[in-house]
Design a protein around this nucleic acid. Structure first.
Lengths: 144, 144
DNA sequence: CTCTTTGCAAACTGTTTGCAATGCC
DNA sequence: GGCATTGCAAACAGTTTGCAAAGAG
């Protein structure tokens, strides 16, 4: 998701209508590196459009995912789905302490290429998540 | 989790009591390669002990996870937590179609070793999941 | 005999659904 | 104007919690 207009076009191609609510969700996601959950997107959206509903956020996210404009990210120990508007192959660092998710782009060999067949499975995509402590949270731990 | 007695000892070390319910959950998990969810463990348990409660399953799983005897596994598109009694480093193959999770042990270089520091994060563990179609489900797709 | 654990039901969180009213195209 | 989309509330799935009764050590 590079810019709002790109997403608008993709929606129109598929005969999905462009509402002010949807356009605003697009603009919250474009260039967003925070891997927000639906609830967080809703909070930001509500500040701009007081009467929106959380269901509209879910509806929009589900279409975006179906169209391949965002990726869903699952984290062990966090039951909400996080959304990533960067659909280029890359990995994630997750801080067990402050729960932030950070993108990490490894060299081409690691991130872009992986076996397309393993144990007879035909592989479509790969998710790599590293669990640990981010720099800020390590400082807090150093006291120990 | 190699055998029930090993788990019993670990529980006793930590002053957790051994109940018939817990012992039965242990035996369901030992050598289980199906990555079951709580609900699935409950179903199997119920067949052996008709009056158990799902809450007891969750209680036991949470202690097992805290003691490091099982790992939790999260899958995009599946909201339930799956449990893996194999805590040796390994990766997972997930079938988008039939939802089965299969262990895959890569060579030592891939599975056991990874950077312990990335972008300033201190890394504790790594999860790799490959999403795709298992051999059985590919057969069904071949018609297309 | 004490204190943990159990079963049950209710609470809770994240997400989906049903539906009348609204509003894109 | 027709049909998708909205907001709201209720429904749903997975998990946790509160509590009286049961039971392990």
């Amino acid at each position: 998701m590079k810019n709002v207009e790109e997403v608008v076009e993709k929606f129109q191609e598929q005969r999905y209508k462009i509402t002010p609510q949807r356009r605003e969700v697009f603009s919250i996601l474009v260039n967003n590196e925070n891997h927000p959950k639906a609830e967080e997107i809703y909070t930001e959206l509500e500040a701009r459009m007081p009467d929106v509903s959380l269901a509209t956020v879910y509806n929009t996210l589900n279409i975006l995912e179906e169209l391949g404009m965002i990726d869903a990210v699952s984290i062990v120990g966090d039951d909400a789905v996080h959304y990533d508007p960067n659909t280029e192959p890359h990995d994630h660092l997750y801080c067990i302490c402050c729960h932030r998710i950070v993108d990490i782009i490894r060299d081409r060999h690691d991130s872009n290429f992986y076996e397309k067949e393993l144990l007879g499975f035909r592989i479509i995509k790969r998710h790599i998540t590293y669990y640990g402590y981010c720099p800020d949270c390590q400082e807090g731990l150093e006291i120990i």
